[in-house]
Computed example of a mutant assay.
Amino acid sequence: MAEKKKAGAFDIRIVIATLVGIYGVVLTVLGIVEKQAEIDKAAGININLWGGIGMLVFTAVFVAWARLRPIAVPIDEKPADE
């Protein structure tokens, strides 16, 4: 039986979560420091803040998914030249 190894940092879900998380932090910070005049342009909704929070929630879900259901990569025990 072949052994299995976790994909770890090479799991695409972690890469996607990292990128979305970075954007989420930036948008959340921008939403916190946003001027009221800019918020009024968007019908009174602080869209940067809500968008950033949504992205951070998305990031948390992806990281939890990757941790709870890791991808197992089979390791072939035979050498490649056989």
Rank of each mutant, 00 (worst) to 15 (best):
M1V: 10
A2T: 10
K6M: 13
K6L: 15
G8V: 07
G8W: 12
F10D: 14
D11Y: 01
D11Q: 05
I12P: 02
I12D: 00
R13T: 10
T18P: 02
V20W: 13
G21V: 07
G21F: 04
I22F: 08
Y23N: 11
Y23T: 08
G24N: 04
G24Y: 10
G24M: 06
V25G: 08
V26H: 15
V26W: 15
L27V: 03
L27Y: 15
T28M: 11
V29Q: 07
L30A: 11
G31A: 04
G31D: 07
V33H: 04
V33E: 06
V33L: 07
E34D: 05
E34S: 05
Q36W: 06
A37L: 01
A37R: 01
I39N: 01
I39W: 01
D40F: 08
A43Y: 15
A43D: 15
A43L: 15
G44T: 03
G44N: 07
G44E: 12
G44V: 01
I45Y: 08
I45D: 05
I45T: 11
I47L: 11
N48M: 13
N48E: 03
N48H: 07
W50N: 12
G51I: 01
G51S: 14
G52Y: 05
G52W: 08
I53P: 06
I53C: 07
I53E: 02
I53R: 02
G54Y: 13
M55D: 00
L56F: 09
T59Y: 02
T59C: 11
A60R: 04
V61S: 07
F62R: 13
F62E: 14
V63E: 05
V63L: 15
A64S: 06
W65Q: 02
W65Y: 08
A66E: 01
A66D: 00
L68R: 09
L68S: 07
L68N: 08
R69M: 13
P70V: 02
I71L: 13
I71V: 15
A72L: 14
A72Y: 14
A72K: 14
V73C: 01
P74H: 05
I75H: 01
I75C: 03
D76F: 10
E77T: 06
E77H: 09
A80P: 04
A80W: 12
D81S: 06
D81P: 00
D81H: 08
E82G: 05
E82V: 13
